[in-house]
Design a protein around this nucleic acid. Structure first.
Lengths: 325, 325
DNA sequence: GTTGATATGTCAAACGTTTGACATACGAAG
DNA sequence: CTTCGTATGTCAAACGTTTGACATATCAAC
């Protein structure tokens, strides 16, 4: 790989001059500029960003830690993060924790060793302490840890409440709710809280089941849902904490001969792309995934530049009515 | 951030000694080793990988360029690449080209500037020349460019042929095929070739429609499929080049009152996770996504280490029969 | 002729680490 | 006592770049 020295030598100028045209500083005549660029072209020169990063003490890399990109929600999120970051001149290092606490810690250390400019943390199994002496910019998704670290979430309470009201308005009498594991202290738990509050206000007491810790072992969904319907065959409305769970519920309903939405009304959460092209298309609470992703990047940049930033960021959700309610 | 000098000073040893314990080389007494590690702990020291990379001339980063991680196939692929690479001590820089030739070129340059150890290229809009003077290790997914650059694909011909045979065996009389845009010179085109060959051998001539270049604008699918069924209302079998397209076909069939699989049999390609939890679950040709991902990483490592490697890697597919046929 | 803007050059330090060459010191084995 | 293995140290170069300080030269304007 050609270095700046090679370019300088071939263009018969000093490295300083090459550096100057590269960084557009100081006086440079058009002739020299053109000559230098031409040589760069010829040598197929690409400035070594590693050396630059070392000197600049800035890598222009953002680390993203999520459970798994193959999960549609995180896949869409990661896509938007990367896109937006790219527009701002940043790269994205992707880490799939698989919700393994060891890997999660490991990834944090790895990102620190690589001097990323910030970390977007979308995977949460760790104790809070691990983050505390993390002096680099960070932002969490759907989890609040201390008051100093900014977080982003959708308006989970609003979402839970909207879901409850919709099922009630549609006349459901026996309602169930499948939530994530409540021990992971995610803000998503607020969906459940708000959902149950609204239910209680209306004199209803839904059946609630939690998924296991490892949310992405999709095999468990079938089992959980099957048992739910076995124990409560009269369920006629269900709020699932993700569209994927909702999809599994639809599948299970088909298996046991219940019609959706005639016999059972189902509402999901997230509004992943698949929610609209599934059959039947899923009624869901839409999280503004792209906006959340952009805000995450912005919060990193603001911390980097020591600008003001909002520590608490709850973005509005919206109800998307499709064919399952 | 603490440097190796801070550690040395605090531990009252030389930087050389610290470096020695860090890299496990030369003689080090247990006492010093322990002392140094203790200080590192106290200072929360993380060796600067940027400096290391610069010196070592190796970044331990692999760049992955794909159209979009939000697309389930690429999301699953990216997950497996990252996982496997992580196990081998490599990080993954993710690039979503959005199938934009300009971004694609830009990303290649960016990855070169960042001295990644290799590039896994899963997005292909460029002319071949762009890759040619790319001296770093590279491997392409589903595209062959020259004989020097290794590629990986599933056995597209086999897949196309299996799909054709299945539809024929199930007695379909009016068969359609939706393929990607054939101008992108993907190996996926071979699915179409083999599919048509088998059809021809059996005296059938399927209707073939291509999607537009930007395969991921899912909006177009509905339109294309709607027109297909308008022009050929008697279609009773369809092979789609991806499970997502298959899902859209299912959706369209529901809209126009055709039953799947009774009236129309549908077979997809990829076997993304969603294929199994969709309703009805999709019959499809399974690509060994994880194996392809691991092989991609291995091919990069082999090139890095100047080991022998196989330039052509066609992995077997399998037919997964579910409920749409 | 002086001044000032423009253009380029030289030189060295800095970023944080590794590595090789070499020196020194201690203790044990011969 | 010599030799060798162990343990540590000093020093400097290297990776590729940026940057500041400073020097020099040309050319135009005054």
């Amino acid at each position: 790989m050609a270095t700046i020295h090679d370019v300088a030598k071939k263009a018969k100028v000093s490295v300083t001059t090459v550096s100057r045209v590269l960084n557009n500083r100081g006086y440079i005549s058009e002739a020299t500029r053109a000559k230098v660029f031409k040589v760069m072209e010829q040598l197929n020169y690409q400035p070594n960003e590693i050396a630059r990063s070392l000197l600049r003490k800035q890598s222009n890399v953002i680390g993203l830690i999520i459970p798994n990109v193959a999960h549609p929600f995180f896949g869409e999120f990661a896509n938007h993060v990367e896109n937006y970051a790219y527009g701002k001149g940043f790269k994205m290092l992707l880490c799939n924790s698989q919700l393994d606490p060891v890997k999660e810690k490991d990834y944090i250390d790895m990102l620190k060793r690589n001097r990323v400019d910030g970390i977007i943390m979308g995977s949460h199994t760790l104790q809070v302490e691990e983050y505390i002496h993390l002096n680099s910019p960070i932002v969490t998704i759907d989890r609040q840890i201390g008051t100093d670290i900014p977080y982003i979430s959708s308006d989970n309470r609003m979402g839970g409440s909207m879901a409850a009201k919709l099922l009630l308005a549609q006349g459901c009498r026996k309602i169930a709710h499948i939530c994530g594991n409540l021990e992971l202290q995610l803000l998503a738990n607020r969906r459940t809280e708000a959902f149950l509050e609204v239910m209680k206000e209306n004199g209803m007491e839904p059946v609630v089941v939690q998924t296991d810790i490892d949310v992405f072992q999709q095999l468990q969904y079938g089992r959980i849902i099957r048992r739910l319907f076995e124990e409560h065959p009269d369920i006629d409305g269900l709020f699932a904490t993700s569209d994927i769970i909702a999809a599994f519920v639809i599948k299970e309903c088909a298996a046991i001969g219940k019609r959706v939405p005639e016999d059972v009304k189902i509402i999901g959460y997230d509004d992943i792309n698949a929610a609209s092209w599934m059959m039947p298309p899923i009624t869901t609470i839409k999280q503004p995934i792209e906006q959340m992703a952009q805000m995450a990047v912005d919060l990193i940049l603001q911390q980097m530049n020591e600008e003001e930033y909002r520590p608490e960021n709850v973005l509005p959700v919206s109800l998307i009515e499709r064919a399952t309610t």
